[in-house]
Structures are given as structure tokens and as C-alpha cells.
Nucleic acid binder design. Structure first.
Lengths: 236, 236
DNA sequence: GAGTGGTCTAGACCACAAT
DNA sequence: TTGTGGTCTAGACCACTCC
């Protein structure tokens, strides 16, 4: 099915061409992609067909279009409709602030309850574990405790998590297939309050996420955000 | 700008026509809307233009299309990936509990700041306003304060909101085109604490939503959930 | 003025559903 | 067989940007 010959519509071929080009870095963020005219010639299709391909990618926020000027690779990553797939580091940088982080724990463990259940693996299955605090201009904004499936993220322990977030590494190592999240409002317990530099008992947004890759659970994470300094946003 | 004559593209006129028809009940859920051929004749445009209008509404999940059969009004149920489009009443009932609600306020107001800004209307624009508490087995689980655009939800004030939630009415009156949300964790102020029967200061999940229909802001809502009794869930 | 995107036309062929 | 949607063409005019 991978090499289906005639079933893929032309506009989809063009979309794929542009998506691959962006993935490979042929066009970086902000770069102009070829004009509709040029793509129409290159693919030997009418401009209407190219227009549909490019317009759909613009609707999907992959590209931005400026009438009279051109079509450009959209600046952001895919945050899109959902609750933060975005890296916390990018979020901070997008605000023009500086991001830093502190790795408090980084080790390997053998799965036991309740992680056995969360990961849908057998007891003893190897998991990697990290506990990191993220800072926005030096102010703590998130604690992130994460467990990763060693089979899917074999190099987890040798990453420099002060430079790349676990999320960013996992996105490369185990491309996201599916995610599940739970959002709660909880009073900060003492340990969390200390890490976030907030009074014990202050309301926090707590996000629990599980991600899947290749039909298996790739990672489980719990993130605490101080309610006074953070809010989730999104659109549909 | 409301009565701009020539700037609105033909495909947008057709989209509006279909959205209004659904809002007015001319086509109910599951009903077939006119074929592309019929719409092309009715609006005196080419089929390609109609196709774009209908395809976009299908992408927005307002319609569903079946090749060889026709185009139908989509069921207004989809919660799926996103943060609660689901009615709170359905959520409670899905858990096998009984839902009830208490209408504390139901009135009309003229838009002033900050609602003028949130609604993108002129000062004095008519808005309807409601404040409702929802109960799960008699336990308060959500306060819902909502403002609705009177132009898009003309019958808002005569609804029986102890039987149908504002959300459910709005889904029919002004089919959802787009939504935006913000989620925060905030300590309950006294007024909220009293309505939810929780101690003042307890962490609450606060969701702010704006919905669009026919290119205009249809409603703005603020919902408070006691953190101890509620959590958001979702998947991607 | 040259190039770009935004929209639209009046046809066409195909795949599929209903009959 | 008829009607539906899915796709595509080869033009066209317009509004806008950039030079």
C-alpha cells in the first residue's frame, strides 16, 4: 500500500512534497516555499490543484500565506488543537524569555505497580526516570517527573537534559502516535512547593500524560505548574 | 462591516446559508442537505465553489459526506480530542449519576468592556447572560457563567436551563465552528466557594471558553470546577 | 509593472451508492 | 442507470506586495 500508484490525489502529493521538504530542512521556518505557479509547473497540474494543497497546509498552520508576497513556512511547531505537545522550553522562548532547567534525578528503575499498569508492561521491565524543574527567566514554572520505556528510548539516560527537554528527545526517539492526558487542580504538597518556590497549598495545574509510539506506551509524565504563573491555552 | 456586500466570497455565503439552515432547524442531525448540483444552481455558482464550501464544513465536522450518497448534518456530539465540548449533563449521566442544575441568574445586558473586547462587538450590543450551578447526585460540580451573542442565540432567555444546558442550546442555535479555551488553577473566592460548597481557597479548575459560529463570537463562558471533585481528560 | 495569492468558472472524468 | 461526491483542468479577474 505504500507505493499505491494512482489513488493518491495530486493535491495530496504536493502536500506531502512540501511536508517532507520542511521536515528535511529544505525550507526552514520563515522561508518562502515555491509559488503556486512554480509548483503547478513542477508537478504539471493546474494552479487550482496547487492552491488546494497549499491552502490546506495553511489551514493546518504548517504554512502562512501573504497575498501579494508569498507562502512561508509557519514559525511555530505544531501545538495546534491540543493540550501542549509543545516543548516547555519553546513555550518560554516564544515569550521572549530565557529557559533553563535543573535535573534533580536521572536513573533507571524496574517497573512495579502502579507503573506496570500505566505502562502495560510486565513487572521488572526497564524504565528510565527523570525529575526536572524548568525555569522561565530563573523563575520555576514546571516540575516534570517522567518515566520512559527503555525499549523505545534507549538513550534516555545519556541525554543532556539541561540542553534538551525529555519531551524533545522523546519526540525524536519515539515519534508520537497517540497521547492521553488528565488535568487537575491540586494544592501543592510540600515537596512540590519547595521546587516551585511557592507557598505550600497554593493551587497548581497538574497534567498527567501518557504517550504511545509503535503501539506501545512510550512515556508517562506528571507535570506541576504553579497556578499563579501558568495557564493552558488552546483552540479547536 | 456586518452588511459588507461584495467582500464576502461566494463559498462563505454558501457556508453561512448551510450553518443558518442547521441553526434554524431546517435540516436536523442526520438530514441530507441539498446536493452540490442543487446548491450550484440555487446560488448560480459553479460546482467547484459549492464543493469548497461543503468540503470545508465537512472538515469542520459540521457535515459528513458520503460519496455516491449525499451530504448530511453531522451529529453534534464529537468531544473526542478536545477539552470538553461535551455537555456537563452528559458527562454526569455517562457516569451513571443524576444531573441537576440551578439557575441563579438569567438576564440581558448591553455589552461593555471587557465583554466588548471578548465578543468583538460594539458597546451596547445585546448579550444574554446566565449563571448556573450544576450538580452530580446533588453535589455541586460546576459553576457556569455564560454570555451569549443575542444575534446568534435569539431564544436564549426563554430556554428552560434546568432541563437543557446553555451549551446544548447553543450547539443547536449556533453550530460550533471554532472554539478557544484557557485552563487555570485558581483558589476559590468566597462567592464561588459558597456555590460549590467547598472551603474558600480550595484549588479550582477554571475554564474560559469562546466559541465562534458564522465567523462571529457566539458565546463566552467561565466555568469553575472544584479541584477535589473534577478532572479533565482527553486524548489525541 | 511584475509577481503573488484569493477567488471563480464551465466544463470533465472517475468512484461509489441507490435503484 | 441515475445521482452523488472526489478530483482536476485551463483559463480568468481581482487585490495586494514589492520594486
Amino acid at each position: 500500500m505504500t507505493s499505491g500508484s494512482k489513488k493518491i490525489p495530486q493535491y495530496q502529493r504536493i502536500k506531502n512534497y512540501l511536508l517532507e521538504g520542511i521536515a528535511e530542512g529544505r525550507w526552514a521556518e520563515g522561508d518562502a516555499v515555491p509559488s503556486e505557479q512554480a509548483l503547478a509547473q513542477q508537478f504539471a497540474v493546474s494552479r487550482m490543484t496547487v492552491n488546494r494543497a497549499v491552502r490546506e497546509l495553511a489551514d493546518e498552520r504548517v504554512l502562512t500565506r501573504v497575498q501579494g508576497s508569498g507562502t512561508y513556512v509557519a514559525p511555530q511547531k505544531y501545538q495546534a488543537t491540543l493540550i501542549e505537545i509543545k516543548s516547555i522550553a519553546d513555550e518560554v522562548r516564544d515569550r521572549g524569555h530565557s529557559h533553563s532547567s535543573q535535573v534533580l534525578t536521572l536513573d533507571a528503575i524496574e517497573a512495579a505497580e502502579p507503573l506496570v499498569h500505566r505502562f502495560q508492561v510486565k513487572p521488572g521491565h526497564l524504565l528510565y526516570h527523570s525529575l526536572i524543574v524548568h525555569f522561565d527567566n530563573g523563575v520555576p514554572i514546571q516540575t516534570e517527573e517522567r518515566w520512559a520505556n527503555a525499549e523505545l528510548a534507549p538513550d534516555y539516560l545519556i541525554q543532556d537534559f539541561s540542553r534538551i527537554t525529555p519531551n524533545e528527545y522523546l519526540m525524536k526517539a519515539a515519534p508520537l502516535q497517540k497521547a492521553e492526558y488528565r488535568v487537575e487542580a491540586i494544592s501543592a504538597p510540600a515537596a512540590i512547593a519547595k521546587m516551585l518556590h511557592i507557598p505550600k497549598g497554593e493551587p497548581c495545574l497538574v497534567i498527567n500524560r501518557r504517550t504511545w509510539s509503535q503501539e506501545r506506551v512510550a512515556s508517562v509524565a506528571t507535570m506541576w505548574y504553579p497556578g499563579s504563573r501558568y495557564q493552558l491555552e488552546g483552540a479547536i
